[in-house]
């Protein structure tokens, strides 16, 4: 479970995120939406343990910056930066070592590379990969650890239609395995058939937090909801 409580982040005098709280339960897919500058990236980076912040963030009831929390946390950043001189497979070897994965990770690595059409590119180094390929490697790295909480920042960008389809399948599989999934995106259509909970950030605060059943009851599409709450008062 991912639990964020009164998360506040200031950059100098600028309040980027203002005391937001939310949870993504096991087996739930949460979607973080918001216009540019709403505080999504700050929230994502705080959860990933890259920023100092006020409030608490726990991953499976562990402090998000603790080693144990990181062992069960997968992260796919918006900009998939890889090591220039490491091959695709070596990235996965590194992850296996860094996360101290159990024997058998090689089979999982092969499976993931096969799903994302990376098998024939396993010996290519990072700097020779296209942006889409880098994104696929980044996804493989996050998925290899079999996370209990996974956070994906704009995961569909740069992926080909087949990879998008496979990723959606994987996310649904993770959900059924009890993983908490948080996706941040601008492309609302891309997550239409996935989400359980939508969190709409606006000016550092939640403008709306709705479950799928709540949205269905209001006969509103997620896109309509987004525009309604983000354009209010503007």
């Amino acid at each position: 479970m991912l639990e964020v409580t009164t998360l506040t982040k200031k950059y100098g005098k600028v309040l980027a995120v203002d005391s937001i709280s939310f949870t993504v339960n096991p087996g739930e897919i949460g979607v973080l939406l918001g216009p540019n500058g709403a505080g999504k990236s700050t929230t994502i980076k705080s959860i990933a343990g890259l920023l100092r912040f006020e409030g608490t963030i726990s991953i499976c009831e562990l402090d998000n910056k603790s080693i144990d929390a990181k062992k069960v946390f997968g992260y796919v950043p918006e900009t998939p930066a890889l090591y220039d001189a490491l091959t695709v497979y070596e990235h996965l070897v590194f992850i296996a070592k860094a996360y101290d994965l159990d024997e058998g990770w090689q089979e999982e690595a092969d499976r993931l590379m096969s799903i994302f059409d990376l098998t024939d590119k396993k010996d290519k180094v990072g700097k020779d990969l296209s942006k889409g390929m880098c994104q696929k490697v980044s996804l493989c790295c996050a998925l290899l650890i079999k996370p209990k909480v996974i956070m994906l920042d704009e995961p569909m960008i740069g992926l080909d239609p087949k990879a998008i389809k496979e990723l959606k399948k994987i996310l649904l599989q993770l959900k059924s395995d009890g993983c908490s999934v948080l996706i941040s995106t601008h492309i609302i259509d891309s997550i239409e058939d996935l989400w359980d909970k939508v969190l709409i950030l606006h000016k550092g605060k939640f403008a709306a937090v709705r479950t799928r059943s709540e949205v269905n009851k209001s006969h509103e599409s997620i896109e309509q909801l987004f525009f309604n709450v983000t354009e209010e008062g503007e």
């Binding site: 080693i67 990181k70 992260y75 950043p77 900009t79 930066a81 992850i95 860094a98 996360y99 980044s138």
Partner: peptide
């Protein structure tokens, strides 16, 4: 560090 370090190592369970 480079961005790859931030994305991959900083989020990993390494001290």
């Amino acid at each position: 560090f480079r961005l790859a370090d931030v994305n991959i190592i900083f989020t990993s369970p390494i001290k």
